[in-house]
Every structure is written in structure tokens, then in C-alpha cells.
């Protein structure tokens, strides 16, 4: 009898859990039904809403959460940071070790890119640096789904299966939204600010640390603006993921505001092929390096072009 009683209770518990899961999933199911009914945008938005995410998270576990529809196209395009942080808040809260296992103190370390005037503060995790640090808030407007555009919980590999076309976004150059073993596509995310300094395109010597000395003085602290204030005044940084005004303000004080993202943190040996917005009196002949460049920003990041 006791064994039967336990069995009954376990069945009752399982049934209750199933009902709760069904209730929690009802919102997502409705959203998926909306998607199937021909209103994919509304369905995707409903999946990504904070309330819906909270409801699903409250009745989920790690394995189920990995397959939550917010991790996939098209819902991930509508995900706001608050929704992502329901489950992933640790990305902003984790701290590096104050001391390495061998005794290296974090406060005594300084990498070459941390010598820039614009780099401030202690060693922190890179998510915090990109999203929540004061400098990030001043010059950037990054959100989680700027980098994270999808995921495959099974193999961490984009799969060419039926329906893939409906769940991916056409990026420039047919780039996948994430790459093998990686949860982002570094060529379309990291490279924008962590590429090499393309000094050769400007006819400058490759070593900026030497070139800048001849371009800067206490009255002109930013050598980049020697040419890029008026002569080559392009429409720059006018995209949703950057704070164009914040960058312009920071650039008045130091060229490191420019160099930081244009070579000063170059993890990679190539440069991002930025779009080349035409500017007044732009020469008709394109230099070789610019011939395949787009003339407008990616549609997904585009803002209305400001009037001159």
C-alpha cells in the first residue's frame, strides 16, 4: 500500500507539473500559433515579451530553457535585454578573480589596449564592458542580440535543415548568424570594433603610435580630426548600435576615442569593410580598397541619415 501511495503521489506530482508546464507554455504556444497563422512578427514579439519570458522561466529548467523559442529566429530579433537577463543576469554580475591561482593580482595587470586614455576601471568581464560600463553607455548602444542572433543547443553549429531559411536573417555577404563552436559571428560583430587599423588605406605609416605624434598638440588633441573633421567628413557612426553624439563628444578630447575602435583593440588582423557613405565633394574615382564597399549601413542597423 505504501508503495502504491508513493506511486499515486508521484503520478499526481507529475500530472501537476505537466499542467503547470502546459499553462506556462500556453503563451508561447499562442505566439507560435500566431506565427503559423500568418502573423510571424506578432508571434515573435509575443514570445520575446518580458512577461512571457518570466512566465516561461518560472516553470522551466535548464534543458527546457535551452530550447526556449526566444533563442531562435525570429523571436530573438525582438528580444530586449531585460528579457535576456531574466535567465542570463550572471553575464553582468560575474567578476574576474582578484588573484590568479598562482598569485597574479588582477589590479596589477594591464594589457596593451588598456593603456588607452579611454580605458578606465578595474579588470571586468567583457559583457559588462560592452553593455553596462560608463564608457559603453557613452559611446555605444549595444544590446544582447546585436551579437547573439541565434543558437543551436545541440551542436553549436548552424544546421542546413528544412525550415532554416525561414528562421535566419539574410546578413550582408551571406554570413551565418553564428559560426561553428561560436555563439556569434565574429566577422559581423566583434570585427566592427576589434579589427586592424587600416592605415595603408589612408596613405599613413602603419604605426599609429608614431604617426599621431606629428598630428597632435595640446590645441589639437585628436590627430584623426586633422583630416576627418572637414576634409573627409563622412556620415559616421550613424547606426543603432552606436551613440554617434557620444563618440563625437569623446573625440574632442583624445584620438583614443577613435583609435580605440579603429585599431587600438585589434584582436584580428583584418579590418571591417565599413560602408562608405558618400560625402560632399567625394572624388568620383574609388580607391581599390573601397570598390566593393556598400554605400549605406546594414538595413538592420540603419537610422535616418541626418540632414547636413
Amino acid at each position: 500500500m505504501i508503495r502504491f501511495g508513493r506511486l499515486d503521489r508521484s503520478w499526481a506530482g507529475a500530472a501537476l507539473a505537466l499542467l503547470l508546464a502546459m499553462a506556462a507554455g500556453a503563451g508561447a504556444t499562442r505566439a507560435i500559433a500566431q506565427t503559423a497563422a500568418g502573423d510571424p512578427a506578432a508571434g515573435a514579439k509575443a514570445i520575446a515579451e518580458l512577461g512571457a519570458v518570466l512566465a516561461r522561466a518560472a516553470n522551466s529548467d535548464y534543458e527546457r530553457a535551452k530550447w526556449d523559442p526566444i533563442h531562435f529566429k525570429p523571436a530573438i530579433d525582438h528580444a530586449r535585454d531585460e528579457a535576456c537577463l531574466v535567465c542570463h543576469k550572471e553575464v553582468l554580475e560575474t567578476k574576474p578573480r582578484p588573484v590568479s591561482p598562482a598569485g597574479v593580482k588582477a589590479e596589477q595587470t594591464e594589457a596593451w589596449y588598456q593603456t588607452l586614455d579611454t580605458y578606465a576601471g578595474a579588470q571586468e568581464n567583457f559583457h559588462w564592458r560592452h553593455i553596462a560600463s560608463p564608457y559603453a553607455k557613452q559611446v555605444m548602444n549595444l544590446s544582447c542580440n546585436f551579437c547573439h542572433q541565434g543558437n543551436d543547443p545541440r551542436e553549436e553549429a548552424p544546421q542546413d535543415l528544412i525550415g532554416k531559411a525561414a528562421t535566419t536573417t539574410a546578413w550582408p555577404r551571406n554570413a551565418p548568424v553564428f559560426t561553428l563552436r561560436k555563439m556569434v559571428n565574429p566577422s559581423e560583430t566583434c570585427l566592427r570594433c576589434h579589427g586592424a587599423f587600416p592605415a595603408e588605406s589612408m596613405g599613413l605609416p602603419p604605426k599609429w603610435e608614431e604617426t599621431r605624434e606629428g598630428l597632435e598638440s595640446p590645441d589639437t588633441p585628436n590627430g584623426c580630426l586633422t583630416c576627418h573633421a572637414e576634409q573627409f567628413r563622412t556620415v559616421r557612426h550613424h547606426v543603432t548600435y552606436l551613440n554617434a553624439k557620444g563618440i563625437e563628444d569623446a573625440a574632442k578630447d583624445s584620438s583614443d576615442a577613435c583609435y580605440g575602435c579603429h585599431g587600438g583593440r585589434s584582436w584580428y588582423r583584418i579590418s571591417y569593410p565599413y560602408p562608405r557613405h558618400p560625402w560632399p565633394d567625394m572624388p568620383a574615382d574609388l580607391p581599390d580598397w573601397a570598390k566593393d564597399r556598400p554605400k549605406t549601413s546594414d538595413a538592420r542597423f540603419a537610422l535616418p541619415i541626418p540632414a547636413k
Partner: peptide, 25 residues
């Protein structure tokens, strides 16, 4: 043993090679 667990190597690697070990940070 010299690592402070800032995980920048993990972020920068285009091929997902560096692996974070949470138990040791």
C-alpha cells in the same frame, strides 16, 4: 594559474577554443 578569469580570450577566439571552467573561475 596566471588566469584571472576575465574570459576575454573566450570572447575573442573566432573558433570557440578557450573553455571557461566555472568551478575555478
Amino acid at each position: 594559474t596566471l588566469c584571472i578569469g576575465c574570459r576575454r580570450c573566450e570572447a575573442t577566439c573566432p573558433f570557440g577554443a578557450p573553455q571557461f571552467i566555472p568551478e575555478q573561475n
